[in-house]
Design a protein around this nucleic acid. Structure first.
Lengths: 215, 215
DNA sequence: ACCTGAACACCGTTCAAGT
DNA sequence: ACCTGAACACCGTTCAAGT
């Protein structure tokens, strides 16, 4: 329907696909609708992506390129690592509907592998050996990925959201601990909680580095 | 095709659906095929679940009930909390194809809310106030959810797996840090890394509790 | 090289009807 | 109350054909 003139290419297709997911949710992205948006038959897309999975890899590439572009190179290696993970969590906030598909994709493309390589290079610069790099990368990635999921849960208008069983909350004290914790788990609190967790993990990392510089 | 005699009910439907996902992947679960497996037309399922999303909630309930059944009540409250999160991560290992759909569902059913309530009750017993309970629940849940995703990434034969760009690994030192870290990120190492991270978070929790008992 | 159009083998869900 | 059968409005992907 639109942009009939410009020729198709992977980047443009993936960018439009991401915009469609952001706007209407991932369930509403189909090869047919994406083609329509690009002014082309659905099958034309198969000339640029072997299948829908490869298109989703392409979307991850777009997002990782965007993340890379925002990362400044000032500060210590560990500052830069933290900045990178913070930016990855922000992906969940900026693209809640696309996040689930991205967080479950393995790094397969050159772009994604290069991003990964850079992150590990910073950990290496900070003085971590390969085992420590792997361990702390994985721990920080676990925590950040989970924090992203929490943001998505609070932000995405989930197309398959079933009605919450609110009647149970009407009975006084049916779920007293949930009721008490609720105010501290609202979407505005998640940022502070994420930072607390990262503080803890980075403190452990720095303590481990300090120990081996003495020993 | 099977089990024609027994009458349908939510539990049996959800259990068969989970088994189908475990065996063939979530993309292969359809209302039609599930009906076929249960010896019934697809539309019969709509008498028990309003839609597919509610069926997925039902699957989460089954899994949470199974998890609850494995949890002993011995040990300190914090021991029990840790045991619960460990069991939740094991869900990713036992049901890699179903995990992604579960980790992204919000707790909506009485079963799920009751599970959540119990977890928060243990944190309360351990001496955490509502704010602390919320914060540490969220931090432990973030980390565990992310660790589960890492297990899934290593275990699930992903139906939409695109071929990894292995050629790039043929160039010597194209990705030196990834290559060095690889051996420490194999599936067998993930358990140890998960435990390291949980050790760090629980140590922080206990230090915070110790501080306020003195103060 | 890049795109079209028809076709194949599916989906989730609605609805009216059966028992 | 519980299930069926046909229908609606879609899917991803293959294939042969067009330019």
């Amino acid at each position: 329907m639109k942009n009939k003139t410009e020729p198709l290419d992977r980047q443009r297709i993936a960018r439009v696909a991401l915009a469609m997911i952001d706007e209407h949710g991932i369930d509403q992205l189909s090869m047919r609708k994406l083609g329509g948006e690009l002014g082309v038959e659905a099958m034309a897309l198969y000339h640029h992506f072997r299948n829908k999975a490869e298109l989703l890899d392409g979307i991850l590439d777009i997002v990782l390129d965007n993340v890379s572009a925002t990362l400044t190179i000032d500060g210590t290696p560990l500052t830069r690592v933290r900045r990178t993970f913070d930016a990855l969590r922000n992906v969940a906030i900026a693209h809640p509907h696309a996040y689930l598909s991205m967080v479950s994709r393995r790094f397969r493309t050159p772009t994604a592998l290069q991003f990964y390589e850079q992150l590990l290079a910073r950990l290496h610069e900070a003085g971590l050996d390969a085992e420590q790099s792997a361990r702390y990368y994985r721990m920080l990635a676990n925590f950040t990925a989970g924090a992203g999921l929490a943001e998505v849960g609070s932000r995405a208008r989930q197309p398959d959201a079933t009605p919450i069983i609110l009647e149970d909350f009407n009975e006084p004290d049916a779920f007293p601990r949930i009721t008490a914790a609720m105010p501290y788990l609202r979407v505005g609190e998640l940022d502070q909680i994420y930072r607390s967790g990262m503080d803890i993990l980075f403190a452990a990392l720095e303590a481990e580095l300090a120990r081996q510089q003495i020993g």
